[in-house]
Nucleic acid binder design. Structure first.
Length: 304
DNA sequence: ATACACGCCTGCTGGC
DNA sequence: TGCCAGCAGGCGTGTA
């Protein structure tokens, strides 16, 4: 499932196709894929058709494409199974096509323009697209990766910056953890504290930092928080460098090719296999109605 | 206010 | 063989 690295791969792959391209038309095959769209502001099709797009931006797992000459952007979240694919007209989608943007790229040096399809494919409809208003960032820093503008879609403004964002505030994150009387994994998955982390990379980062998922967030020392943040960044950066994860082949990048980080997972999905550090069999337990994978030897609950 | 349960979704898998 | 419960889990909303 797409987490920060996978969404960033999509954003970067989308950029050359959509930047300065014009939206010629929109086909919505599944209205539920517009769940995030507030139709009181107008129909998605009407707000997008004819607009010229700017470079896509991302914060955490949210992606947005500003619409030039307006204070609006197309917002996309991939949910569990969403993909955004850049296709040549006429391509046949194997997955469940929910929304298709017909776009025309800007005039090239040779003077021609190309028509492309931007296909939003999503099996489970946890993801969605919308048109939303851009609002100023609270801290005045750029809204996210891919933009210099201090703007963020209204529905993304409550999402914290992600740990790869230069404007992420380490000290504020540490203070927030100190106020959280909950397990550290729950805090890592709380997108209002730190964004971009999902179940896979939460388990991987906790293993790397030798922390138990239920360790109370407010029991961690400043030094441990620093270590954890460092491991989070290493895990995300490594996955990003490898092009994203595709342990179940749900995730594909904008051209339809699978990512390939799954071979280097240390604990996620590795239950029963030896811990790469100490050899103790990895355990899987239910936590927060999802699976948590950890090494019972390396990752023990510590006294507060 | 904070913490947490739940609903949303569909394709695949394993057990009977 | 066929059916169906269980599972995958991010995020918004509702509740205590």
């Amino acid at each position: 499932m797409p987490e920060l690295p996978e969404v960033e791969v999509v954003r970067a792959g989308l950029a050359p196709a959509v930047t300065d391209a014009t939206i010629l038309g929109v086909e919505v095959f599944e209205p539920r894929s517009l769940r995030r769209h507030d139709s009181l502001a107008g129909a998605f099709e009407e707000l997008t058709t004819g607009r010229v797009m700017a470079t896509p931006a991302r914060r955490g797992k949210f992606l947005w494409i500003p619409l030039q000459g307006t204070d609006e952007a197309i917002v996309a979240h991939l949910g569990m199974s969403g993909q955004i694919l850049v296709r040549e007209p006429g391509a046949i989608e194997k997955g469940l096509l929910r929304i298709r943007l017909h776009i025309e790229t800007p005039r090239s040096e040779s003077g021609d323009r190309r028509e492309l399809w931007i296909d939003f494919v999503d099996q489970r409809i946890f993801g969605s697209m919308a048109v939303d208003t851009l609002v100023p960032t609270v801290d005045g820093a750029p809204g996210g990766r891919g933009t210099e503008e201090p703007l963020v879609p209204a529905q993304v403004s409550h999402i914290a910056r992600d740990p790869l964002d230069p404007a992420f505030d380490d000290a504020a994150f540490a203070r927030a953890l100190g106020r959280k009387n909950t397990g550290i994994k729950r805090a890592l998955l709380d997108q209002t504290l730190i964004s971009g982390i999902g179940n896979i990379y939460a388990d991987e980062a906790l293993w790397a930092a030798k922390l138990h998922y239920a360790q109370p967030a407010n029991s961690l020392s400043r030094a441990r928080i620093r270590t954890l943040l460092n491991e989070v960044r290493l895990v995300l950066a490594k996955a990003l460098a490898e092009g994203g994860t595709s342990f179940d082949a749900q995730y594909v990048n904008v051209n339809g090719a699978s990512g390939y980080f799954s071979h280097s997972l240390n604990v996620y999905g590795q239950q029963g296999k030896p811990c790469p550090r100490c050899g103790t069999p990895i355990v899987r337990e239910q936590f927060m109605n999802r699976s948590s994978h950890f090494c019972p030897h390396c990752q023990r609950l510590r006294a507060a």
